[in-house]
Design a binder for these strands. Structure first.
Length: 685
DNA sequence: AGCACGCCGACT
DNA sequence: GTCGGCGTGCTC
């Protein structure tokens, strides 16, 4: 189509001012009364709508008046299906292929080109990967506009970044580490990808800081570091405080103005380093050289909204698309990143043999048999060996006790038949600290007259013992010792080097000044028996995470069998080896990440409708009660997501059948039922 | 999702 | 002869 200069096409129909009834806005026909931009008067616009059938580019005309402002990346208001909606301009072209009269762009919300072409490409790639929509993803990538933040001046200060002497040495402690460091320092970022398992007794954020300095030292190019939570962000930002003036911090909890300001600092080149939580993986950074993702098994790297992207995988997509380096680190190692290593897409970095033998904790696994013979145990849960190690450790400094459950007695069962004890409302019973008797964890009703619905017994038995009850037990076993506890609901970040017993849930361990003199991991056996696919890799992550905090060669006691592969990995400090083994099992079983899968959720007829339209070579598991799983070979993953996108879009326009919910590569393929959210979960002080 | 257009029953 | 039912389909 030509630029609309033909009057027969573009005549404005002026409505009589005080006119008669049918004041219908011109639905079809050229509504543009004004001259169009002389060059490339067509804007390609992405509409802000989550509907799959609208997930494409729509063309609009650009008036001469808006010519300067309508640039790729700006936010605009356009009339769509009669209503004003917002969208992003993703391109300008001389002609349209729409084959129909175009409506004009009504308004440019801001001249700020927030959705850079690279970012638009990344967002589209992520949407495709997860069979989601552009607009669902772009919401995470570009924060809402804030006018005041836009009016500020943004300048990049002169600041010489210098690699410190110990920075080089740090990475020399990892296999392939020195080479990675050299490449980054020398500006070679294309195809530089590392998967990094942390060394014990060497703070991970200092390792990251060293690498960031190496990338920024040549005073060209930028870096992004993605961390699981805001506290980690503070920790690294503090470690790199000399770079404060060129660092943007992006976390979800900062207000709209701050968030947009930090985003603009990256966009306008006033920040060369972005440190943030998961959405920071999309941050605009001029000449991006490196993305670091730490602790990729942490759940908070998953976006909780559709299409449920994961920051690690977005980082991988971005690394490929933009040719920047990628480093994914963790206390242990995920099977996903192990696959990258085995495919040769990334290099494996792990502490060298010398580092391990000099610093790894000395692990003592307590067998089930040991525990049964353990007549000297202070209680059923506190084995004598653990007691001895704690006692010896307390002469030297703080001792960490990791307990997998928070609270006091978080789970109870029937004494007789061992079935979970339930309240009349269906909720599970538990006992909070300070509560003298058990109560329902959902509705809070006391369980004084509880009677087992199955066998009629009235006695309860503790199935799980939480941090607070454990603290009480240790308090009795170690009178006059300071007891500190920390759990997700009440986290303690640091403890001093003076002796204390520190009881914590996984992930809530305080960092000890100088490291823990001993580490004790309780109730470990049960963590390997959980039904989740991720149970053993999650256990590895938790245990390596605790072990990292120990002093070099400190004793570590764990109540799990020596023969368990995870325990073996801990003893040998070999997280890659464990991930390799776990990955081999998954390959054999045809599970993630060796395959790609989609979970379909919907009515059985709708699901079979979708399945009948899939032509990619696939396997179907299920369908069962409203959901089913489609599995394809890994290399067919993009075909699967592509077909599912098309199918969803096609079906959405039809009136027959309801939509089917599609989730690609979910964290746990089988969704668990979650208890209703009530305030009754954390009783007592 | 809205919001049209479109082709069959009861009303002035 | 007209108003209106909500089934089907499009939205630049």
């Amino acid at each position: 189509m030509k630029p609309a200069t033909d009057p027969s096409e573009d005549q404005l129909v002026l409505l009589p001012a005080g006119g008669k009834a049918p004041v219908r806005r011109p639905r079809k026909g050229p509504p543009s009364p004004v001259a169009l931009a002389p060059v490339s008067p067509i804007a390609q616009v992405r509409i802000d709508s989550p509907l799959p059938q609208l997930d494409r580019i729509f063309d609009y005309t650009i008036s001469q008046q808006l010519d300067d402002l309508v640039q790729p990346g700006v936010r605009v208001r356009v009339r769509f299906a009669g209503r004003l909606v917002t969208g992003f301009v993703v391109g300008r072209v001389p002609t349209s292929t729409a084959g129909k009269a175009l409506r004009p762009i009504e308004r440019v919300l801001s001249g700020e080109r927030v959705l850079t072409p690279q970012l638009a490409e990344l967002v589209a790639a992520v949407a495709e990967h997860y069979a989601g929509t552009f607009s669902d993803v772009v919401r995470s990538a570009v924060p809402p506009r804030h006018a005041r933040a836009e009016s500020l001046q943004y300048e990049l200060p002169e600041l010489a970044v210098e690699v410190k002497d110990q920075d080089v040495a740090r990475w020399g402690r990892y296999t392939n580490g020195a080479a990675l460091f050299r490449r980054l320092r020398g500006g070679k970022s294309a195809n530089t990808r590392g998967v990094w398992s942390a060394a014990p007794a060497q703070p991970w954020y200092q390792d990251i800081a060293a690498l960031v300095r190496a990338v920024l030292e040549p005073s060209i190019g930028g870096a992004i570091v993605v961390l699981p939570d805001a506290h980690d962000v503070d920790l690294l930002a503090h470690e790199l405080s000399e770079l404060r003036d060129i660092t943007a911090v992006l976390t979800a909890d900062q207000g709209p103005e701050r968030r947009y300001r930090e985003f603009l600092r990256g966009l306008r080149g006033a920040a060369r380093l972005v440190i943030g939580t998961r959405a920071a993986v999309f941050a605009p950074v001029l000449d991006l050289r490196l993305i670091v993702v730490w602790d990729d098994q942490d759940d908070s790297l998953w976006e909780p909204h559709a299409p449920y992207w994961n920051a690690r995988d977005v980082a991988a997509i971005r690394s490929s698309a933009q040719g920047c380096a990628l480093l994914v680190g963790a206390p242990a190692r995920s099977v996903e990143t192990q696959l990258w290593c085995e495919q040769g897409w990334a290099r494996s970095l792990a502490p060298t043999r010398e580092v391990i033998s000099a610093t790894a904790p000395m692990v003592r696994a307590l067998e089930q048999d040991d525990l049964e013979r353990d007549v000297a145990a202070a209680s059923a849960r506190l084995p004598h060996m653990a007691w001895l190690v704690a006692k010896a450790g307390l002469k030297l400094g703080p001792v960490l006790v990791q307990v997998p459950r928070r609270g006091y007695l978080p789970t109870l069962s029937c004494q007789n038949c061992r079935r979970p004890a339930r309240c009349a409302c269906g909720g599970l019973l538990g006992q909070g600290v300070g509560q003298s008797s058990p109560a329902c964890t959902w509705c809070g009703v006391p369980a004084a007259n509880w009677k087992c619905k199955v066998c009629g017994d009235t006695n309860l038995r503790a199935v799980a013992i939480g941090v607070e009850r454990t603290a009480e037990e240790f308090g009795r076993a170690f009178p006059s010792t300071q007891i500190i506890w920390s759990q997700s609901s009440a986290m303690r970040r640091n403890v001093s080097a003076s002796p204390a017993l520190v009881i914590a849930t996984p992930g809530a361990e305080p960092v000890a000044d100088g490291g823990y003199a001993a580490v004790i991991i309780l109730d470990a056996r049960g963590q390997l028996q959980r039904p989740q696919l991720q149970a053993t890799v999650e256990a590895a992550r938790r245990w390596f995470g605790a072990a990292l905090l120990a002093q070099p060669r400190a004793p570590l006691v764990i109540t799990a069998d020596n023969s368990e592969p995870v325990v073996q990995a801990l003893i040998r400090w070999d997280a890659p080896g464990f991930a390799q083994r776990e990955l081999a099992d998954r390959v054999a079983a045809g599970l993630l990440p060796s395959t790609r899968m989609a979970v379909l959720h919907g009515a059985p007829t709708d699901i079979s409708d979708v399945l009948s339209m899939l032509t990619v070579d696939h396997q179907v598991l299920g369908p069962t009660d409203g959901s089913c799983i489609v599995v394809v070979r890994r290399e067919l993953g993009s075909m699967l997501s592509g077909q599912l996108r098309v199918i969803s879009a096609t079906r959405a326009t039809k009136s027959t059948g309801k939509p089917v919910n599609v989730v690609l590569d979910p964290r746990e393929p089988i969704a668990k039922a979650s208890p209703p959210m009530t305030g009754a979960q954390k009783p007592g002080p």
